[in-house]
Amino acid sequence: MTLLSTRGLAKDFGGLRAVHNVDFDLPQGQIRALIGPNGAGKTTFVGMLCGRLTPSAGRVAFDGADISTLPAHKRIRLGMAYTFQITSVFARLSCHENVALAVRRRHGDEASEVPAALVRVGLGHLEQALAGDLSYGHQRLLEIAMGLAQRPRLLILDEPTQGLSDSEIQAFKALIRDLSAEATILLIEHNMDVVMATADRVTVLNFGEILAEGTPPEIRADRAVQAAYLGTG
């Protein structure tokens, strides 16, 4: 079953074609990596999926329903979660409260689910710390915990491993594989090692258009992709 699909999705920023005519289908339960060079339009594309950006053209469907005109918070309520590329946490609130805000919105059990989400990303010992006092890598993990705590059907992660240490990246890979039982995952990722280890399929975006799509080995072997991206990466 297709959980998310787009047809003819496009975004212009005053003449600049950031995303152009993208048809995209994501089956339920899949881990999909979205890769592409800097400025390829990845963040812009997922911004239109979760409602942060209004498309210039095209449609988005989620779970069989057209959500093109829904505001962001309603899309999130349908079961999407989004982690920002540029870390966005509640800096002056505790880690507990950051995650609790995610749990409370869907009327979950704050007392049990908040510590569980923090433990899962390896921040169990920092529950009472202020989010703004965490290292950059730990703030990224906190955002992932906020994503998990929403129990999403579709989890969109925008470069989650940026700023993580090697051991944290290993833990992240395990977490993603573990999560795929519960959620469909759309992962924007520059680290090819993470992509190869986690993704079921890979979509390559270049100059706002889909350049290729396939399994990780297929993508690795694709010459157009090599020219556009892997060669330079």
């Binding site: 920002f84 966005s88 946490v89 509640f90």
Partner: peptide, 13 residues
Amino acid sequence: ENEDRARMLGYDV
């Protein structure tokens, strides 16, 4: 503290 993040947690700001 962070309006955008609150919205992207599903709150009707």
